[in-house]
Design a protein around this nucleic acid. Structure first.
Lengths: 154, 154
DNA sequence: AAGAATTACCCACGATTACCCACAATATAT
DNA sequence: ATATATTGTGGGTAATCGTGGGTAATTCTT
């Protein structure tokens, strides 16, 4: 089945073991383009979750950061915030990546992980946290939500 | 007889077996354009049913999602809600797709499935649920219904 | 420099999934 | 009407997947 490369959908439940390893769903590994070399970049998400980019997607972000002048302190601060928590990870022969305890703490992750395909990236969530956040967000702006549905869903 | 590609009409009753497999009606398989590579994308419908898109139609949705900025939390939430339950499925040599237990639960499906052509997509229903929903909806907005008839039916 | 702790890499195994074959029922063709 | 192909349904088996643990290499500490 040939689908779009570096495109992720679906949700999966996996366990994080004592060493901080989580499985990357086999389907996600298969969608990862070969030039990524089995490598993702993990970092803090804008929500309390971990964001997982294909390496090449992250490199695109890096290229954008390089364009920013380091003379402006705001720019420096932005570059710092973006680069600071990011690290490349190659998955092992069993398809797992290792999550640092810093990232696990940030996403309030313990033993169970909910992994969600977000089209061009992947999110790793604590299921309870996700539910909380989703409740907040969807209640707040349901009209915007409907608008988006109208525009995008076939 | 050549009909419009990726266009589906008619209704069919099939059984879901112990492995969660349902047949895609042969006529639907024949209408599926070759570039879909025998692949559909299944996801939650807006009604309590399963939506089945031709792969290329779904990719159009994905392309739209990619345009959304991930900086807005509403956008992220929308992408999440849309991508989360979706997964590509290729039908097997007998013409069946596999439905996950999550989707089966969502659509309250058990053994019998009612498959309905919805022009650009396919719906899989529990017949009882469909009847319930149809009764509700048509009673509620019968005037809108008539308006639509006026505009669309020859 | 030697020991301790951490990390990278390998193996194992039960559970699940993908893929194949079989066959009865229906539809199509001769 | 009979033969032939197609369709819908069931099941079996081999490969893959998710998870746990072990050992060697590396890094850190003192």
């Amino acid at each position: 089945m040939t689908i779009n490369q570096d495109t992720f959908t679906g949700e999966y439940s996996y366990t994080i073991d004592a060493k901080g390893r989580v499985n990357i769903p086999a389907k996600f590994r298969q969608s990862l383009a070969p030039e990524n070399n089995n490598t993702f970049v993990i970092t803090r998400g804008m929500d309390p979750c971990i964001w997982v980019y294909p390496l090449t997607a992250w490199q695109f972000i890096e290229d954008n950061l390089k364009e920013l002048s380091a003379v402006s302190s705001i720019n420096r601060s932005f570059i710092r915030a973006t680069a600071r928590y990011a690290s490349p990870v190659k998955y092992d022969k069993q398809g797992r990546i290792i999550l640092s305890s810093q990232l696990l703490d940030y996403a309030k992750l313990d033993k169970d992980a909910l992994i969600i395909g977000m089209i061009n990236k992947i999110e790793i969530w604590n299921a309870d946290e996700l539910e909380k956040i989703e409740k907040q967000t969807t209640e707040m702006d349901s009209s915007v939500y409907d608008e988006l549905s109208d525009k995008i869903i076939l």
